[in-house]
Design a protein around this nucleic acid. Structure first.
Length: 539
RNA sequence: GGUGCUAUCGUCUAGCGGUUAGGACAAAAGAUUCUCAAUCUUUAAACCGGGGUUCGAUUCCCCGUAGCACUACCA
C-alpha cells in the first residue's frame, strides 16, 4: 500500500530563515505537490534560550512571499493583498488535526514518550551537570557518553532507584539519555545517497529530554512528531545525515520501524569563495543577501538584507534555488514553480555541495524581470521614485521609460540610475563624457540645432514610422531623424559629434537609450530647455 | 582526532561503459550603434591521483588525496 505523501518543513525560530533552509522548504514543497501530498510546517522551538522573537512570523512570511504554500501546521493567514509595507505584521493560523504544531506546546505529549522509553529500558536518567561533563571531557580524551563510559557517571544505571527518586523529588536537574546498544551496524536508506551504514559505537547516549526547561531535544521531539504527524518522507539538509542512524534507532525503540519515514539528505549550500557552508556572515562580507526578506533581529539588533528588498522577484529566487542542487534531464534552465513541481525528482538531486553562485542569481532575476509588464514594474518602481523625491509621477510615462531601459537592469532598484535623467534635468555633466564628446564646435552645433528644433510642431516632435533599413529589416524612424540627419549631412558635421553633444545636453552623460526615445519622453519644451541650459553652463 | 558524505570547465551542472565530454552563469573577441547597455555570433575553459574489472572507463570497485558535514542539556 502506498502511504499518502506527507512532508514537513520544520525550522527553528532562532533567527531569519537562511537561504539554504528556503531551498529545503522548496524541495519539500515540490515533492509534496508532485505527489498530491501534504506540506506541513512545524516549529521546532525546543531550545528556549535561542528563541528570537519575530522569527516565526518571518519564516512564514518568507514562504508566503515565495509562493511555497503550507497545507497543514502553521502558516501565514491568507488575506493580505500583495502589500510590501506591512511586513513583520502577518497573522499566523494553525490548520490540521495533528497539532499543536509548535513543539513548545507539545510538552505533555513528549512526557508520555519519554516515559515509554524509560519504562522499556531504552533510556535512563542522568544527573551529571554540564560542569561535571566538561570536567570529564577535559580529563578523558575524546570522551563520549556511551556504553564505555555510562557506568562511571551519575545516572539511574549506576545509582540505586531510591537515590534517583530522592534526587528527583529534591528537584535536582536531570536529563533523560537514550541508551545506545554498542557495536551494531545501523543501516539508513537515503533516497539520494543510497545505503549509509554507521556503527552504533560512534553514537553517544544522546540527551532526549532536559528537566531544566521541561523540553525535549531535537532528536526526541523530531521523531515523536514525525511519527504522530504521519510524515512519510523526511527531506532535510545533509548536516543531519550523521544523526540519521540515531533516529532510526529511536524509531525502533518506539516500535515504529514499520512506519518510519523515508530519508533524503540534501547537499549543502557552500560559500561562493573559499571553504565551508554558506553562513549568515557571508552575505554581508560578499555583498549579497542570504535571507529571503530583510530581517530585523529584535534580540541582537542586527539587520540582515533580504532578496525581496534587494529587488528580487520571488519566481527568480525559486528558479535559482530550484536549480542549486537539482537539475532536470535537458538543458532547460528557466523553470516556473509549476514546471519544477512537474519535473522535480529526488533522484536527480545532486550529492555534492553547491557553491552559492550569486552571479547566476542575478541573471535569473534579469530573465524574470523582462517577463514582467512595464506597468507591473512601474508599480514596483514607484516607491523608489518617491524615495528620490518624485511624488505622483505620470505612471504611463514611468511604464514607457521602463520599457526603454528594463533590458539593461537585473533589479528594479537599478532602474533609477538608468532612468533618473527622465525625471530630473542634469545639474552637472559627466566629466569623462564631456572630455570625449563635447568638442569646441559643440556649442555652435547645439545652437544651430535649436533653431532647427524650435519650429517643429508638437505632433511632429513625437511622430515615428516604420521603414526598412538597407538589409530590409523593419526599423522605427523618427520624424526628428528626417530633420536632423539631412542637416548634419549637408553641413558635413559628423553624426557622432552632434548627437553625442546633444545627448550630453539631455542626459548629462554619454549613456542612455536611443536619443529620439529620450526626446519623445521629455517632450519638446523640456528638451529645448535642457539644451539651452547646457549651452549656458558649458558655453 | 574519530565517523560519515562527496569529487566533470572559475561556478551551477548534463553524462548513467564506446560522445568531437553538452548546456548555462561569469570571462574574452567580434557584429551592431549617436552613447552606455542590451542583443546576436564566436572563442577559451573540466573528467583529482593511483590501482583494478573490462575488448574498452569520466562512468563500476578499491586505495590515496582533497573538500564538506557531524562529533552539545543547538537545531
Amino acid at each position: 500500500m502506498e502511504r499518502q505523501v506527507r512532508v514537513r518543513f520544520a525550522p527553528s525560530p532562532t533567527g531569519a530563515l537562511h537561504i539554504g533552509g528556503v531551498r529545503t522548504a522548496l524541495y519539500n514543497y515540490l515533492f509534496a505537490r508532485q505527489h498530491d501530498g501534504v506540506m506541513l510546517l512545524r516549529i521546532e522551538d525546543t531550545d528556549s534560550t535561542r528563541f528570537v522573537p519575530g522569527a516565526e512570523e518571518y519564516i512564514l512570511e518568507s514562504l508566503d512571499w515565495l509562493g511555497i504554500e503550507i497545507d497543514e501546521g502553521l502558516r501565514a493567514k491568507k488575506s493580505k493583498v500583495e502589500s510590501q509595507k506591512s511586513k513583520a505584521d502577518i497573522e499566523i493560523e494553525a490548520v490540521g488535526s495533528h497539532g499543536p504544531y509548535r513543539q513548545s506546546e507539545r510538552r505533555e505529549i513528549y512526557h508520555l514518550y519519554v516515559k515509554q522509553l524509560l519504562d522499556s529500558g531504552h533510556a535512563y536518567i542522568a544527573f551529571d551537570t554540564p560542569e561535571e561533563l566538561e570536567a570529564k571531557r577535559a580529563e578523558i580524551p575524546n570522551f563520549q557518553y556511551d556504553a564505555r563510559t555510562r557506568m562511571m557517571m551519575r545516572n539511574s544505571l549506576t545509582m540505586p532507584a531510591e537515590e534517583v527518586q530522592a534526587l528527583m523529588d529534591k528537584g535536582e536537574k536531570y536529563v533523560v539519555r537514550f541508551l545506545v546498544e554498542p557495536n551494531e551496524d545501523v543501516h539508513v536508506h537515503d533516497l539520494i545517497r543510497g545505503e549509509v551504514v554507521i556503527n552504533s559505537n560512534i553514537l553517544d547516549d544522546k540527551v532526549l529530554y532536559k528537566s531544566a526547561d521541561d523540553l525535549p531535544t531535537y532528536h526526541l521531539a523530531n521523531i515523536v512528531d514525525d511519527h504522530l504527524m504521519e510524515i512519510s518522507h523526511v527531506i532535510r539538509g545533509e548536516e543531519w545525515l550523521p544523526s540519521a542512524p540515531l533516529h532510526v534507532l529511536l524509531y525502533r525503540a518506539f516500535g515504529w520501524q514499520d512506519t518510519m519515514p523515508q530519508f533524503a539528505h540534501l547537499p549543502l549550500l557552500l560559500k561562493p569563495d573559499g571553504n565551508g557552508k554558506l553562513s549568515k556572515r557571508d552575505g554581508d562580507r560578499l555583498g549579497f543577501p542570504v535571507f529571503p526578506l530583510e530581517f530585523h533581529n529584535q534580540k541582537d539588533g542586527t539587520v540582515s538584507s533580504g532578496y525581496r528588498e534587494s529587488g528580487y522577484l520571488p519566481e527568480a529566487v525559486i528558479n535559482f534555488l530550484g536549480l542549486l542542487g537539482w537539475h532536470g534531464t535537458g538543458d532547460k534552465e528557466i523553470y516556473s514553480m509549476q514546471e519544477l513541481i512537474e519535473e522535480f525528482s529526488l533522484d536527480r538531486v545532486s550529492k555534492s555541495g553547491a557553491k552559492f553562485d550569486y552571479e547566476k542569481g542575478k541573471w535569473f532575476n534579469h530573465q524574470y524581470l523582462q517577463l514582467r509588464t512595464n506597468e507591473e514594474l512601474a508599480q514596483m518602481f514607484r516607491p523608489l521614485l518617491a524615495a528620490q523625491g518624485i511624488e505622483n509621477p505620470d505612471m504611463q510615462m514611468v511604464a514607457k521609460v521602463i520599457g526603454l531601459t528594463k533590458d539593461r537592469v537585473n533589479f528594479v532598484p537599478e532602474l533609477w540610475e538608468q532612468t533618473n535623467f527622465f525625471f530630473l534635468a542634469p545639474t552637472e555633466y559627466d566629466e569623462k563624457s564631456l572630455k570625449k564628446r563635447w568638442k569646441e564646435d559643440s556649442p555652435r552645433h547645439m545652437t544651430e540645432m535649436l533653431t532647427l528644433l524650435e519650429p517643429i510642431s508638437e505632433e511632429d516632435w513625437h511622430r515615428s514610422y516604420e521603414t526598412r533599413d538597407d538589409n530590409g529589416n523593419t526599423v522605427i524612424r523618427w520624424h526628428l531623424d528626417d530633420i536632423i540627419m539631412p542637416w548634419i549631412a549637408a553641413q558635413e558635421y559628423g553624426v557622432g559629434i552632434v548627437m553625442n553633444a546633444f545627448r550630453i545636453c539631455l542626459v548629462g552623460a554619454a549613456r542612455g537609450p536611443h536619443i529620439w526615445n529620450i526626446t519623445d519622453v521629455l517632450g519638446k519644451e523640456e528638451t529645448l530647455h535642457r539644451v539651452r541650459k547646457a549651452l549656458e553652463v558649458l558655453g
